[in-house]
Each structure stands twice: as structure tokens, then as C-alpha cells.
Amino acid sequence: MSGILVFVEHAAGEADRLSREALVLAGSLAAAAGAEVEAVLFGADAAGVGAGLGEQGVRTAHVVEDPRLGAYAPAAWAVAIVELIVARGPVAVIAGGSERGNEVLAHVAARTGRPMAANVVDVTVAATQGDPWHLTRQRWAGSLLEDAELRADVQLLTVAPHVITVDESGGAPGGAPAASVVRFEPSVDDRDLVGRVTGHEAPKGGAISLADAKVVVSGGRGVGSAEGFGILEELAGLLGGAVGGSRVVTSNGWRPHSDQVGQTGLRIAPDLYVACGISGAIQHIVGCKAAKRILAINTDPDSPIMGVADYAVIGDLHQIVPAISAEIRRRSAPD
């Protein structure tokens, strides 16, 4: 086929956001390479999701419904993709820049001895078959870009998260034709199933998750202690938001690691990110730069956070944060 094969992750009947980003990149490469986009999906409801991918430009959705591969099984999923590579001869296999996207593709790469490029942001397809593709990929979680060449019969790429814009309107009006669903049964043996997910714990309900919060009030070393986060909690509560932090606060044990924003923590995209006593190290910034707006509260007007913030208040967060909460209360109180 000489197509482009995309590994599509899905939940609740819909393709995941990062997989849709991969589909957008695949679409533009397919146009350049004169190829068609095909998808591969796993799980009981894969056929429904796969058929719906027509709107994202997918012609054929390869669907694996084998119940042994229903739960995430990275090595076995990779075996299935390797089988598809042999059967379909795609010029590239692309996955989203999720944990699973990177993991499954790395298994494919390892099994077939091919190179792989993770967190790609831009690709130029070679004009002549057999020449290397040019790509730009992220280093340091996006603080740095690398221009690179990748020479391979099948390009294995994952797409850096939140760089490629996805059309949220749901594709062309009138609707594109549904993708044709092709079921296939990969020959997976028990050894490939080792390492699959065998247990699941539901998330604790209640609090607004840091990943989804519209407002995040985040603290760094300047907060000074675990107790110091009380005033950040209060402000976050008034704004219906969540509390985050820098690596310094999680390494000091002031907050759990699940609150960490940055390269080795969460990458989030709230409407407003309030950085209190955070200096703005690049490894922190990559976690919050997708926010619509950043408000910095810092004693140091020259700290690097000022280079990325949209708004700032200069001064001691221990006075400023409670003053903001008090002002919100004052304005919302009935006169």
C-alpha cells in the first residue's frame, strides 16, 4: 500500500487527543507521500471507533478484538503492529506522544531492529524513495529542538504532545465516508503477553484533577514549607482550580509527586496558571507553557519566569496570595 499506519488509542468510544494529533500529522505526510492513512486499534470497541476515523482521513482501520489483547499489552500490541507492517508495507508507523504511544512503538522498533524518533514536531518526506526523511524533534521535553535525519524502510515516529493543532469541529460538514474496518487476528503467543496490565485501580473521586483543572495555583521553593501551601489551596478553592508545584516542593516532600508540573511531572494546559515562588527553570516551564495565561508572583523581578509570564505581581507570595483571596471574597460578598 505504501500507506501511513497510525496506532490509535481510544477511550469511551473516542480516539484520544494525542492519537488525533498523530492522525493530523499522518494526514499531511500522506498527502506529501501520495499515500493513504490507515489505523490500527485494539479492544472490544475498536471497530466502532475505527469506522468513525473516516472523518480524520483514515481509509482503513485494522482492528484487533482478541480478548487477550483487550487490556493493554505493549509487547503483544507491538507484535500485531509488526505483523501489519509485513502485510501492508507502510512507509511510516506513527503514534501519539503518550506513554503508550512511545512504549508500543519502541517495542516495534526493538523487535524489528529499526530506528525510532520520539516526540517529533515536524517531518519532511523524502522526495526519492530510500532517502532519509528530515524531521524536527523535541529534546529536553521541548526546551530544545533537534533537526535530524532518519533513514529507514519504515519510519517509526511518535508525535510530540500538544504541538499539532487538532480541528475540534469534527471534520468536514456532511461527513467523510466511514473508514472500512478490517478485523485481524495477530499470532500472539503467551510470551508476548508477559507484561500486560493485570490490575486496575479507579481514580480517587472528588478533587479536581491537576490535569483537567481550568485554573492551577502552583507553588515553588518560595512557598517555604508544606504548611505554606494552605494559602495556595485556599485561592485554588475560590477559583475552582487545583494546586500544583515545582520539583523542589515535591523533592522536599511538601507535596506529593503527582502535583509536580514539568518535564518529569505533568504537562498541563489550563486557562490560567499562577506560578507562586517559582523561578521558571526550563524543565518547569515545559510543563505549563501550554497554559492560556501565566501569572507570576515572585519577589525577584528578574527571575526567568518573567520571560514566560503574561502577568506578574512583584513581592512576597505570603502576603499577595491571601490578599487576592480576601479581595475575591470581598467582591463576592453580598453588600
Partner: peptide
């Protein structure tokens, strides 16, 4: 591969901070 050709610092985006 991938074979590195060179590195770039991404361009800073956005307006200067409003105090």
C-alpha cells in the same frame, strides 16, 4: 539514527510580561 543535524532553541513566544 535518528542522526542529529543540529540543535535549535525554540523561539520565545508572546508579549513581554505586564506587571
Amino acid at each position: 539514527g535518528p542522526v542529529k543535524l543540529g540543535l535549535r532553541v525554540p523561539e520565545a513566544e508572546g508579549a513581554p510580561v505586564e506587571i
